[in-house]
C-alpha cells in the first residue's frame, strides 16, 4: 500500500514530481537540474539518489511516524492527520455502530414477523435506501429538510463544531459536537441501514429454519433468550464479515459527504488536498485510510471469533 503510493507519486507518467519540475522550469526559468533539486526539497526527497535508497529512507521515516510536510502549508503531515482523524473516526464509527445495531434489530424483526405490514414496509424502505447513493441522500436531506421545509437549521449544522465553543469534556461541547455530527452520521446510517436490514433478514430466515431453533423452542426457552443467543447470534455471523468491507465503503463515501457538510474530517481534507495537489497530505491520508481498512478487517475477524467458537478454537477438531 505505502509502496503503491510511493510509486504513484514518483514514477507514474505525469506524476506530481515531474509536473512540479516542469512548472518550476517554466515559471522561474530554472535549469532541469536546479528545478529537480528545488522540487526535491519541496517533496522532501533527493531525486538524484537511486530509487531503492529513496524507498528505504521513506519507509524508515514512515516507521518513525514521519510522513513529511505538507507542500502547501509546510505543516507536518502527521500533525494534520491527527487533527483530521478524530472527526472521521467519530462520525463514521458512530454511523456504522447505529446502522449496524438498528439493521440487525429491524432485520431480525422483519424475518420474525415475515409477511406482516412491518416487514413489507421495511423491505420497501430498505430496497429504496439501498439503491440510492449516499450523496444523493445527503443532498435530498439538505434540499428537502433544510431548504424546502426548513425543519433543520441546516446552515448552523455545517462544520465540525460551532466556532467559539471551547473544546473540552463538557456537556455543551459534547452536545455541540453531536449537533454538528448529526448530518453526516444520519446520512451514513440511512445509506447503510438498508443493506444491513436486508442481509440480516435473509440470514435470520435461514437461521429460523435450523433444527436447533425448533429444539430450543421445544425446550420452552423464553422469547428473549431465543431471539438473542439462538437466532440473533447465529444470524449475525455473516454480517460481521461484511463489516470490514463496509468500513472501506463508508470511508470512501465520506469524501463526498464531509465535503458537502463541510465536516473537517479526513475525507474533506483528502478532497481539498487533491484539488490543490498537496501530494504529501494525500499520501498521508491514503495511508490512514488503508490502515483503517486493514484494522477493521482485523477487528471483524476478532469479533467473528468472539461470536463463533468454531473459528476461535481453530479447525483441529471441527467435523
Amino acid at each position: 500500500m505505502t509502496t503503491f503510493t510511493f510509486i504513484l507519486i514518483r514514477q507514474m507518467p505525469g506524476n506530481p514530481f515531474s509536473i512540479k519540475v516542469e512548472q518550476l522550469m517554466r515559471e522561474q526559468n530554472l535549469t532541469v537540474e536546479e528545478a529537480t533539486n528545488r522540487a526535491g526539497a519541496l517533496f522532501d526527497f533527493d531525486p538524484n539518489r537511486p530509487l531503492l535508497e529513496q524507498y528505504t529512507e521513506y519507509m524508515g521515516k514512515l516507521l518513525r511516524g514521519d510522513l513529511g510536510k505538507s507542500i502547501i502549508s509546510s505543516e507536518p503531515v502527521m500533525n494534520m492527520l491527527l487533527r483530521f482523524l478524530p472527526w472521521t473516526l467519530f462520525s463514521v464509527g458512530l454511523g456504522l455502530l447505529i446502522s449496524f445495531g438498528l439493521g440487525i434489530l429491524i432485520g431480525m424483526l422483519m424475518a420474525y414477523w415475515r409477511g406482516s405490514l412491518f416487514d413489507n414496509v421495511m423491505t420497501a424502505f430498505a430496497s429504496v435506501m439501498y439503491g440510492i447513493p449516499d450523496y444523493v441522500i445527503a443532498l435530498l436531506l439538505i434540499i428537502v429538510a433544510g431548504v424546502q421545509l426548513r425543519i433543520l437549521p441546516f446552515a448552523q449544522m455545517l462544520g465540525g463544531s460551532t466556532p467559539g465553543i471551547e473544546p473540552g469534556f463538557r456537556l455543551d461541547y459534547i452536545l455541540d459536537l453531536l449537533f454538528h455530527a448529526f448530518l453526516p452520521v444520519f446520512t451514513y446510517v440511512i445509506t447503510s441501514l438498508g443493506g444491513w436490514m436486508l442481509t440480516m433478514k435473509s440470514s435470520t430466515m435461514s437461521t429460523l429454519g435450523e433444527d436447533y431453533i425448533t429444539v430450543a423452542r421445544a425446550r420452552g426457552l423464553s422469547q428473549r433468550r431465543l431471539l438473542t443467543a439462538y437466532i440473533g447470534r447465529n444470524a449475525m455471523l455473516p454480517l460481521v464479515t461484511r463489516l470490514a468491507i463496509s468500513v472501506g465503503f463508508i470511508v470512501g463515501g465520506a469524501v463526498i459527504i464531509e465535503t458537502l457538510y463541510q465536516y473537517p474530517g479526513l475525507g474533506r481534507n483528502l478532497a481539498t488536498a487533491i484539488l490543490v495537489r498537496d501530494y504529501t497530505v494525500m499520501q498521508g491520508i491514503f495511508l490512514v485510510i488503508a490502515i483503517s481498512v486493514v484494522f477493521s478487517n482485523i477487528l471483524a475477524d476478532l469479533l467473528f471469533g468472539l461470536l463463533d467458537p468454531r473459528v476461535r478454537l481453530g479447525k483441529e477438531d471441527a467435523s
Partner: peptide, 12 residues
C-alpha cells in the same frame, strides 16, 4: 430430534 448435528446451537 433427528440429526443431532443441527440440533445444537453451534455458538454456545
Amino acid at each position: 430430534f433427528q440429526g443431532a448435528l443441527n440440533s445444537l446451537n453451534p455458538v454456545i
